[in-house]
Amino acid sequence: MKANRKLWVAATVCVAVVAGVTGCSQGDDKAADPFAGLTADAIADKAVETTKAATAFRMNGTGTTDGEEMTVDFSVDSKGTCKGTMQAVKGGKAELIGTGDVSYMKGDDAFWRSSGGEEGASADEAGAMSAMLKGRWLKMPAGSDEDAAAFCDLKTIVKDMEEDTPRKGMTRGADADVDGKSAATLTKKGEKGETTTFYVAKDAAKPYILRVVEAGGKEPGTVTLSDFDKPVTVTAPPAADTVDMEQLMKGAS
């Protein structure tokens, strides 16, 4: 397996370098398990609570929703600052940034046409919206009903994460490697054949959820979490490059 190969390479490097280099153990070749004595369910509880307490993190991965594959790479912090991209094969690609009070979204032609269609607009109306927003950012005030605005709300994200994370009936498997970090593997099998696997950092102080893999169900996907507690820095686009959603809605009415 690729994960095992990474561990083997790391071990080989440690043997080759001078004793005492950071990251190479001179004692036991196996680090103590920070979850020793805990059930898989208890580890899941610790992971969820720790991840909920993070002041920021990055999410990237691919999943399937309503039969369409979506790729997301997104960073958000507790101040409502966020930035990232999302892309669907049929729905196009969009960039999103948030500055706390306002969110901005810029999509390509396919994205705006797809978004317009979801609201019941005609092909001509969706085309007109795409033309108006071409190369420009749609400005959305905080608290708007747009789904995009919720992307910048860390509390909403972690609440959804908590509700969607199984906490009972977990099984611990062999440890794995997630981007160079040792992780405990927790698996939950669903009633319809789906399997959810969580990779939890083997860190006694901060056992974050590092990766979630959903397989076998109607909405398979993989999401990796990183950059915990790292503030997100963004710059709002110039006013000349934006279209105000509130003004746009007033004009439409």
Rank of each mutant, 00 (worst) to 15 (best):
D66H: 14
P207S: 00
A123D: 00
F74E: 06
G251I: 05
K2F: 10
S144G: 11
S115I: 08
K218R: 02
P231C: 05
G180F: 13
K30T: 15
A121H: 06
G135Q: 11
T85E: 10
E163C: 04
S182E: 14
A174Q: 10
A201R: 05
M132C: 08
A110F: 08
D45H: 14
M59Q: 02
V102W: 02
F35M: 03
G117T: 02
A121T: 04
G251W: 10
T235M: 03
A252V: 15
P207R: 00
R58P: 05
W8A: 14
A123H: 00
W112E: 03
E163Y: 06
S78Y: 09
T85P: 08
L38P: 04
V89Y: 10
T195P: 02
F198R: 00
A128R: 06
E146T: 11
A205W: 06
E69T: 15
R172Y: 02
R58F: 04
P231R: 05
D29R: 15
V243T: 08
D229G: 04
A16V: 14
G100C: 02
V76D: 03
D241V: 08
I209F: 07
V158F: 03
A110N: 13
M70W: 13
D109K: 09
T196F: 02
A131I: 07
D101N: 06
M170N: 00
C24M: 12
V89E: 14
M132K: 15
R136N: 12
I157K: 06
L210D: 11
L138C: 13
V158P: 03
V15I: 12
R58E: 04
D160T: 11
A204D: 05
P166Q: 07
G190C: 11
I43A: 03
E246K: 14
I43M: 06
Y199E: 00
A16I: 13
A54L: 08
T235L: 03
G63K: 06
C82M: 09
D77P: 04
A44W: 08
A94G: 10
A183Q: 12
G135N: 12
N4F: 12
G127V: 01
A10F: 13
S25H: 15
E95R: 15
E95P: 12
K83G: 07
T62D: 04
A11W: 12
E163H: 06
R172W: 02
F151R: 05
T99E: 01
E191Y: 08
T65M: 08
Q26K: 15
D145Y: 12
R58W: 04
E49R: 13
D33H: 10
L248M: 13
K46T: 12
F228Q: 05
L154M: 00
F57R: 03
M86R: 10
G98I: 03
D179I: 07
Q87W: 08
T12E: 10
E146A: 15
D73F: 09
G63L: 03
A16Y: 09
G169A: 05
P34V: 01
D244Q: 06
K250C: 04
V213E: 08
M70I: 15
V243K: 05
K181Y: 10
S78D: 13
A149K: 10
D124F: 00
V102F: 02
T185S: 11
G120P: 03
A252W: 13
A110C: 07
V158A: 01
D160Y: 07
E118R: 11
A56N: 08
A42N: 05
T55G: 15
A174H: 09
K168D: 09
Y104I: 02
D229N: 09
T197Y: 01
T62P: 05
A110P: 10
A131T: 13
